[in-house]
Design a protein around this nucleic acid. Structure first.
Lengths: 116, 116
DNA sequence: GATATTAATCGTAATATTGCAATGTACTTA
DNA sequence: TAAGTACATTGCAATATTACGATTAATATC
């Protein structure tokens, strides 16, 4: 009968805690290898990257632009216009905040006993 | 013209490194609050959970079952049949392996300089 | 064996994500 | 001002994900 069809394909975020949704949002943005690649590159070059991300990663310019937008929306990177190009780098403060949230989630104490 | 339409909506995993794809796979499974919630519950009760996950989280039984399957497919949890119910717990060894991979990614050294 | 309980699977509907061509916008330079 | 460069946005096609009703499978209990 599908009375609740308005929800299908859409996460029911309202039944979860803010923290659970926050963790999921961060994780989701890391859930694509292109975004992982972009972030690794930003860490590797240890400064802003201006323009060469499209060459670095083998995806079309609009695709890269879209991935950058998602990272920027979450606040994990920042971009500044530099002439005709845009320079991107890790948003250090927000990255650290994200790291604390994710570490706390990933680093919980494992159960002592072998239960099953 | 969309000659490469076979790729659309599908991540082009082949152009990324194994590590990038591995990080993305782990992150993706954490990218839904229901799975975050399931894992938090497994950590919290500090032993196996047998059966009450559907009551604990407000989603239908097939939905929970599906999320559990994804966690199991990645090896992060394990389940053993116990009568008519199934008991789940964190797969400690695999969780630790995952943690190492994710920590290495999240904990990279931030650039010293404020670049942009 | 019949019935109840629990969880997995199937089928399906709806939304989300991915990717890129085409286009738009902003700035630079000739 | 015209042309070029770099990036964002739009539009759209294809696949992926989420959710749940219905059903199935397996075990337990009567």
């Amino acid at each position: 009968m599908y009375l609740l069809s308005k929800y299908m394909g859409l996460a029911k975020t309202e039944i979860f805690t803010d923290l659970q949704n926050e963790i999921a949002l961060y994780a989701k943005v890391f859930g694509h290898p292109a975004r992982v690649s972009i972030l690794q590159h930003l860490f590797k070059i240890d400064t802003c990257v201006c323009g060469d991300l499209v060459n670095e990663i083998g995806l079309a310019q609009p695709t890269i632009s879209q991935h950058l937008k998602e990272l920027k929306n979450l606040g994990l990177i920042q971009g500044t216009v530099e002439g005709t190009s845009v320079c991107y780098c890790i948003h250090k403060e927000n990255w650290t905040k994200m790291k604390e949230v994710m570490f706390k989630f990933l680093d919980q104490d494992l159960p002592k006993a072998d239960c099953c």
